[in-house]
Design a protein around this nucleic acid. Structure first.
Lengths: 365, 365
DNA sequence: AAGGGATTCGAATACGCTCTCAAAACTGTG
DNA sequence: CACAGTTTTGAGAGCGTATTCGAATCCCTT
């Protein structure tokens, strides 16, 4: 089997020069067939292509980018790929971006704004053509790095979250409405003491989900009880701890609304340990999909976000910025979430539900 | 709010030249402070840094790479980030790679070997410094693209799977042993008719998991019944369909070993629809983690892979190749999986839980 | 055969940076 | 103060490609 040590004959990549020489043609001509800019006669074209094959030529993207000022690379900055929401987003974005000839470079911020700044700087050094960003919570609301990127002509599309006070291209889920829809469902079932376990209020997402909660309760003339409002960090542990805390204290809620899937899993764990049954003893509804949730019993009522579509739309928006002909005004695309009603809130017979949930109870937008 | 239209004063990035001019210093000196190669006196150093700040200078990585022949980019090629196994791997790899100053570029092959080839070519055009690759099933075993990359001095570390017949750096899970351990557990519980739902036998991974199955049965002098061996594609649907198929035909297995998590979820769905209870009517064990599985009841017996660690180890291996001082011989690192015994095979837990839930229900009514 | 227009080709330059190497500026010593 | 030794600085040559624009070639017409 061949390996680097044996075959280090051509350790260097072939250059356009060498291709030209071998095809008995000038460098310019090779460049032309590469980018089929100027028409090249069939004969030369074939000769060049043959030479490229012979030399196993791979054009040097760095030289190309240096000259052309386009890198064909797009940076995507997310909070944490380990959160099951993001692989779908990534995949959606990738599907459109790759189709347009770009590469995707990925970074996790872990929701650390300082890290986000470093990453933006790095991406600028690498001269990416555009960025997709799930912005980190930003207490000081210091968005200079984003503004600067845009000012330098690098389109930035915000995904899932929007920095406060910055009018910028973005693709988001209608968190207010999704959340309201879900809480309304709980209200409709007769619940009055509905607790919420939310994420950090530094995140627009969390604020919006709270707003939806507020709206639904307002509509029903239910006064918000601060004791039933908890702020976690969108991680398993905070879902777990806050659930236990809520249920061991007064007033004890009859329904629990958890603002994301991972905390939702934590909540389930908590309920489990307390041997509190759902929906008999408490109703549970979750914003976001619970990983592997469709096999859970009871099936959890949840607000499903169009994650893949979010990525696709963001990718498309970025591409149309890149290809130029768009009004320069920032655009915001809002996607609707879908409420899937499971057994964790209505709690009737299991067989009936799983059948019905597919056909009837799925509220479409 | 600032935006591209208003502030397009410096649409062009500052260059090292401009920094030099502003700091009243030569280009070489600026370069030296950038890479602190030649010691630069404190005074000039400060002047240069100030100038960089003033001009908001971001060095052009393309120019740098063109000259230095190092891109500081590593490509990672996986089959599908949507498979929950991979985000962890990615994160593990990222954690070490970023720490060493590299960027990560990601591609999904969807297990399409042709796509893999295109991606390798693209990565070479972009002159990545190294690659991490989860190779696609490769019926013709045509690995020229991998060999070529290595021959050109681009280290490639294979992750999770190894191309057949190619001795190459790789980090894998001990699939044979993990699988054998799991099937042995089923045998120990007295099962003789143990079915397996495997992935494509083009994948080393799948072949190894089968080998473990075979070993465990051999040890127990159980003859393999081809009717109990199924080959799927590691996706939900094949787990679902094959489970139904297995359980509606003869001989009917008393235990089911599913070779990955996603198919495991499918199997659960299948059992659910057939109203076949686990573990009373069938024992279920799964290689790989089921998404959100820790909340499932019964808890599924599973072989947990060290996904994050796999990424870390692969990243470290690649980095040490990159930094040079390693024996040039290919290295294979094998990580062990862990068998977590749940209620889906031993069933005591399950009985306890379902009994408890009934009591509670009664109490409430 | 010659002229003119349309097509195709190629020499040369610039892109922004690193890195070598010689010159310049210091330092200390006799 | 002269000189050797040491540190610090800067000029310049590429890295591999895209692109411009004049030159060369081709194809028709007359």
């Amino acid at each position: 089997m061949s390996s680097a040590q044996e075959t280090n004959i051509h350790k260097r990549n072939a250059t356009i020069q060498e291709v030209a020489r071998r095809a008995k043609v000038s460098v310019g001509t090779v460049s032309n067939v590469l980018n089929n800019s100027n028409a090249v006669s069939g004969l030369l074209q074939r000769r060049v292509e043959q030479a490229m094959r012979d030399l196993n030529y791979h054009p040097n993207n760095h030289a190309r980018s240096l000259k052309s000022r386009r890198s064909s690379v797009i940076g995507i900055v997310i909070s944490n790929i380990t959160n099951p929401f993001f692989p779908l987003v990534l995949r959606g974005a990738e599907s459109v971006i790759v189709r347009h000839g770009y590469m995707l470079t990925i970074f996790n911020t872990d929701d650390d704004i300082e890290r986000e700044r470093q990453i933006f700087s790095l991406l600028r050094t690498h001269r990416v053509d555009g960025m997709l960003a799930v912005v980190a919570p930003n207490p000081a609301n210091d968005i200079a790095h984003i503004v600067q990127a845009i000012d330098m002509g690098i389109p930035v599309v915000c995904l899932d979250r929007t920095p406060h006070g910055l009018n910028i291209d973005s693709v988001v889920v209608d968190n207010v409405r999704g959340s309201a829809m879900c809480v309304r469902h709980l209200v409709d079932l007769g619940h009055r003491k509905i607790a919420i376990i939310n994420g950090s209020s530094w995140l627009q997402t969390a604020r919006d989900r709270y707003k939806g909660y507020e709206m639904a309760l307002d509509e029903a003339n239910i006064k918000i009880d601060r004791n039933l409002v908890r702020e976690g960090d969108f991680r398993f542990d905070s879902g777990y701890k806050m659930t236990k805390d809520l249920l061991l204290n007064h007033p004890r809620p009859t329904a629990l609304f958890v603002a994301n899937g991972t905390m939702g899993l934590g909540a389930l764990q908590g309920l489990n340990e307390l041997a509190i049954h759902c929906p008999e003893q408490i109703a549970l509804a979750v914003f976001d999909e619970i990983p592997g949730g469709r096999m859970l019993r009871p099936l959890i009522t949840s607000v499903i976000q169009p994650a893949y579509d979010l990525g696709v739309k963001a990718g498309e928006l970025l591409i149309s910025r890149l290809t130029g002909k768009m009004s320069p005004d920032p655009v915001t695309i809002t996607l609707q979430a879908e409420l899937i009603i499971g057994e964790s809130t209505i709690g009737s017979g299991r067989a009936a539900i799983s059948r019905r949930s597919k056909n009837v109870l799925r509220k479409r937008k």
